[in-house]
């Protein structure tokens, strides 16, 4: 008997208000609503979240590992892009 697998979903959870949703893992589910339910059951059993996003893994377009050089290496030698050349007055405090 052929066994149809449910599609794969990526799960993102916001740990608390004000923080970003973070990727926590993936799971199988028949549709988006069930994916939310499954994510609740699998990833928030210990009250880890206040919000869940799910997205079909197929719908994610990822950069290719083989393009790593052209994509990321050029940024390496451009230290002036880091905002480390400003004097911050003491009164400003922690930024």
């Amino acid at each position: 008997m052929s066994r149809k697998e449910w599609p794969l979903w990526e799960v993102f959870i916001r740990g608390q208000h004000g923080l970003n949703h973070r990727h926590v893992g993936s799971l199988h589910a028949s549709d988006a609503e069930m994916a939310i339910h499954h994510a609740r059951d699998v990833y928030t059993r210990r009250k880890e979240g206040v919000s869940i996003w799910v997205v079909k893994s197929n719908d994610i377009t990822a950069s290719s590992p083989s393009e790593k050089g052209p994509l990321f290496d050029p940024a390496e030698s451009k230290a002036y892009r880091h905002p480390t050349f400003f004097d911050i007055p003491d009164e400003v405090g922690h930024m």
Binding site: H28, A29, H38, D41, V42, R45
Partner: peptide, 11 residues
Amino acid sequence: PALEEDIAMAN
């Protein structure tokens, strides 16, 4: 039948 259902039912 699926890991996700297994956990959900245990919950």
